[in-house]
């Protein structure tokens, strides 16, 4: 798994690529926690490059969503791949996230 971060004035976009499962979820969690610690609580996760998303990865998304909402921010999803989208739907977690078809729309939503 690889992550790439782009910081905008009000929003931070994290692009996630590859497999997010039990072996890589910890890395994603650490990357997102660092952003939170830096006071960045308006987050967009670009999931277009995600090839596999297991419940371990979903756990990180939900944990981060809870954390940013506590500080008045939000975690929104941009252009999830079919595989990421299926995993989120199968886990019944689609109702928790605002999802946008492209990252520009997700960034503009804040």
């Amino acid at each position: 798994m690889e992550t790439q971060t782009q910081v905008y004035p009000r929003v931070t976009v994290v692009s996630v690529k590859g497999r997010v499962d039990s072996t890589s979820a910890g890395d994603l969690e650490a990357a997102l926690k660092k952003l939170l610690d830096d006071g960045k609580s308006n987050l967009v996760l670009d999931l277009s490059g995600v090839e596999f998303l297991s419940s371990s990865g979903l756990r990180v998304l939900v944990t981060t969503l809870k954390a940013v909402r506590k500080t008045g921010g939000d975690l929104r999803l941009a252009q999830p791949s079919q595989r990421a989208s299926d995993a989120i739907d199968l886990a019944g977690l689609d109702v928790l996230f605002k999802t946008y078809g492209d990252r520009e729309a997700a960034v503009a939503s804040f």
Binding site: S55, R59, A87, G92, L93
Partner: peptide, 22 residues
Amino acid sequence: DPSASLREAQVGGRGLLMIRRV
């Protein structure tokens, strides 16, 4: 439990839900 609310969502048991739905 297939329902999810942010307050209760611990993601525990989500794997089993995924298996059953697939």
